[in-house]
Write a protein that binds this DNA or RNA. Sequence first.
DNA 1: GCTTGACCTTCCAGTTAGGGGAAGCCTTAC
DNA 2: GTAAGGCTTCCCCTAACTGGAAGGTCAAGC
Lengths: 127, 127
Amino acid sequence: MNISGAAKAAGLPVKTVRYYADIGLVEPAARTAAGYRDYDDTSLRKLSFVGRARGFGFSIAQCRELLGLYQDEHRTSAEVKQIASARLDDIRAKQRELQALHDELEHLVGACCGDERPDCPILDYLS
Amino acid sequence: MNISGAAKAAGLPVKTVRYYADIGLVEPAARTAAGYRDYDDTSLRKLSFVGRARGFGFSIAQCRELLGLYQDEHRTSAEVKQIASARLDDIRAKQRELQALHDELEHLVGACCGDERPDCPILDYLS
DNA sequence: GCTTGACCTTCCAGTTAGGGGAAGCCTTAC
DNA sequence: GTAAGGCTTCCCCTAACTGGAAGGTCAAGC
């Protein structure tokens, strides 16, 4: 299967699939005589795997680790869980941060009349 | 005041202050004979303003707009409120996205034993 | 007056995870 | 045979900095 077929199957842009091949994350099974990337079933499954992992916000480095575990017969679920837990912690940290920003900004926006006058509690707060 | 003093006063890294000068966001009031950036009271206030706005997650472009309004006698609070509301909408969208990721990933992590065996619902879900 | 160390300057490269587009080869359909 | 479309590599671009190198400047101490 050529790159556009693989991209479609994995639900990724062609550029992204090429990028993953460039950085050695998911390499095509082979190249055709003309130099075209050729994806087989295994490489296709890896592409989809990475696509879903990226959807969870795992970094490329984490995807690389997860992919390694995915292909490792002797992995332990503890190793996987540790990576996923780290991501979960990141998400929770980001959520707390966003919540604080949200509350503060919502308060300011609520206090601003939004009319034709120049007086503005938002600018007051920033200055 | 030289750049390290200004950076300290605004609570920003020196590199960042230099960057803001480079992109014309907050320029120093003058240069000394030796070419050193020289910050006065006004430029210091702008630096702090931008630092706080960046803390809210406003983009550099939004900071530029806010700074323009801050210095504009004829601004309307509506203009400010519009920018802030846009940022608030962004935050809320990000929060919804993170919440969905959080719930799904928390569910998977909770279902993973995290022991020595290779069986893992997280990998199962990704593959 | 000289040295030393801490400043300052500019410039270049790298970061994440790709996106856009050019120049040129390959394949497929008509 | 040719034209359209797909593929290749290569390079530049993004946001908002950060790190580092090479070299000029300044203040303190001897």
